[in-house]
Amino acid sequence: MIYLELFWSFFQIGLFSIGGGYAALPMIQQQIVDLHGWLTMTAFTDVITIAEMTPGPIAINAATFVGTQMAGLPGAVIATLGCVTPSCIIVIFLAWLYSKYRELWAVRGVLSGLRPAVVGLIAAAGISIIALSFWNGKLLEFSLAGLDYLAIGIFVVAFFVLQKWKPNPIYVMLGAGVLGLAAYSIF
């Protein structure tokens, strides 16, 4: 029963991928390449490439891709459902706890430690995106020669626009995309 297997596999991926993003990769690989052989390693690498190029969490992207390949659109829907079910249950429970107990001094204490931590973590994620953009992800080959000056230029313009006029970030991203298309085509 492929639907059940898809659901259960991605349920486990959703349940055990803590830390988000690329932390989920080993878990996904183990389930769909090693355990079930649903994808070859090459196809799996392709899934990561697609996930990098398209919006959405990597686990959801993988679920949809594998589901489509194995059992068409119903497969995609069921694999995605399996992927988000653990999140739904756990997060709704935590949200309920938060709404009930957030005025407690102990919970406020914990949250007062978490708020600055979140900012630090976002900054860390930002650094890796900057590395990907400026050096095409080759952080280990960090050098001035490998610098993508156009990407830096687009970054600076986008940052300035965000600071100065505070527009919706979605428009800035789209604008950066169009700017990139024009700039990379010309130079």
Binding site: I129, S133, F155, M173, A176, G180
Partner: peptide
């Protein structure tokens, strides 16, 4: 590729 630089700016902001 252009959007990637835009995303970096959004996060930095």
């Amino acid at each position: 590729k252009g959007m990637q630089a835009g995303v970096a700016a959004v996060i930095a902001n």
